[in-house]
């Protein structure tokens, strides 16, 4: 059995695959305890994180989570609408360069550009959403363009042999035919989105959120609370990921990738 564990491409049956995951979980926790058992340690101990978590609760952690989730939902909604419109119009030769160009903007840094948003948006929330929509859209557009590029020519030919005109082909093959991929693109880009949300919240603190909590605690070097917040952010991100995957599989029975 031990030999199998170290053989490339070997398939491990249940429940042994679960034992391996459990082993690594215990190893991580053990290492954490071990590294923080002395007087001086770089990272906070589990007890400090636990205490930090309790303190965060009394500071309104739930409200801040609600604020971050609300920001996430609004930004993702606007961003995906904008991205889909641009991407669905990209098969038009005249508009194709536009989508490709916006996709390239993902290399632009956030810092320095936020000033221009203050000119147009006068509330902190409005500005946060605008910043996120612009930056998230560049990532969504990149992924959605890749989805369209991967559609085999046979699917377009199939639609054409069924007397679909070009707009019907766009509707059936690209829009309806790849709707489930939109959920997957959302899921895949969620990590970037989630990271941006925390950054944007820490730039514009007026509306609160998990980013504000991290920033405030970072100022006072309260590592127990920072670690607790990181764990909360990680768990929330993973839960959204699971939720989106669940939505894709429930809404689109044929979506089996």
């Amino acid at each position: 059995m031990l030999r199998k564990l170290f053989t490339p491409l070997e398939k491990i049956k249940a429940p042994f695959n679960l034992y391996i995951i459990l082993f690594w979980l215990i190893m991580v926790l053990f290492t954490w305890f071990l590294l923080t058992s002395g007087q001086k340690h770089l990272i906070p101990s589990p007890a400090q994180v636990f205490t930090g978590f309790g303190e965060l609760m009394s500071e309104g952690l739930v409200t801040h989570i609600g604020s971050s989730l609300s920001l996430c939902f609004q930004s993702v909604l606007f961003s995906i609408i904008v991205s889909l419109i641009i991407v669905y119009l990209s098969p038009l030769p005249a508009l194709k360069p536009l989508a490709s160009m916006i996709s390239k903007f993902r290399y632009l840094p956030l810092t320095g550009i936020t000033y221009y948003f203050t000119v147009f948006f006068h509330t902190a929330r409005g500005m946060q959403i605008a910043v996120l929509v612009v930056f998230m859209s560049t990532f969504f557009i990149t992924s959605l363009l890749a989805v369209i590029k991967d559609i085999p020519d046979e699917e377009f030919d199939h639609a054409r042999t069924l007397k679909c005109n070009r707009w019907e082909t766009l509707w059936e093959v690209i829009i309806k035919g790849r709707l489930d991929y939109v959920f997957d693109v959302l899921r895949q880009n969620l990590a970037i989105v989630w990271m941006m949300i925390v950054t944007v919240e820490s730039i514009l603190v007026a509306e609160g959120g998990l980013g504000v909590l991290i920033k405030n605690n970072d100022k006072f070097m309260n590592h127990g609370k920072i670690f607790a917040l990181q764990i909360v952010i990680l768990i929330l991100g993973l839960l959204i990921d699971v939720f989106l995957n669940f939505c894709r599989k429930s809404l689109f029975r044929y979506s089996k990738f």
Binding site: P152, E154, E155, D157, H158, A159, R160, T161, L162, K163, E172, V173, K176, G177, L179, D180, F252, Y254
Partner: peptide, 15 residues
């Protein structure tokens, strides 16, 4: 659309 065509992969609308 005048002539039916079935390719090697038997392509259909996936949705």
């Amino acid at each position: 659309g005048d002539v039916g065509f079935v390719d090697q992969k038997y392509t259909l609308f996936r949705h």
